[in-house]
Amino acid sequence: MQALKELLYKMADDQLIIGHRNSEWTGLGPILEEDIAFSSMAQDKIGQAQALYKLLHTMGEQEPDVLGFMRNAEQMHCCHLVEVPISNYAFSLMRNFLHSHAELIRFEMLTGSICQPLANIAKKYRGEIKYHVMHGSTWLKQLGNANEDSNQKMQQALAGCWNLALGIFEPSPYETDLQKENIFEGETALKDRWLETISPIIGKASLKLPPHNEWTPAFGGRTGNHTLHLQPMLDEMTEVYKIDPSAEW
């Protein structure tokens, strides 16, 4: 039970936080279509977080709104990649590309989970995230190959995101339990498939992964050790809710 909850919390928190970060592009997108794309992806991801919180609620955790709005940074299970500020557009695009690919593979793996409600949710989400992945892969190839300036910006974004992205796969204390109980194959299997999937796309975008000896995954997020950026973001995100948590919307 604890193993499954830990898995659900980190998936839900990742979706909520990257969803909120993506929504910060609403009104600021470099072109109208991208403004809409980031806003739509934000809406998808926050909706996905909500259904995962609902599932946690059926397992005895608090109401979805309480889980989403009333926890402090140290109670959150998201990885560092999703919580850092939006920075420039290249960075946000790269982050969304790297994270959405990991999510798509994670949910594809979970469609076979012994936990049936989670498998059902995973079947639904993979169809939605497919669009996020198509968006990211298309822009990566477009901008990576457009001109020297755009290539350089994407390369810098990749360098800035890489170790944060490796932090997605921070092993949980329950890896063996999840595997033994056929709930989830685990973070290592996910990371291997993710690398296999994104490496050729990064190559086609004329970008290079950082050298292997510089790979130092940003771990800590899954156990509540976050960057300094998460708490201020949560404060802003929950400001209105906290004025009157019992308000009917």
Binding site: E33, I36, A37, H135
Partner: peptide, 30 residues
């Protein structure tokens, strides 16, 4: 196709080069 994301989650944005009008599609979702 102009964008796979439109005014609502279920719509994408398109342009017709014959009648020179923008239009929306209800997105295929698997």
């Amino acid at each position: 196709m102009r964008s796979p994301f439109g005014p609502t989650l279920c719509r994408s944005l398109h342009y017709c080069k014959n009648c020179l009008q923008g239009f929306e599609q209800f997105k295929p979702v698997a």
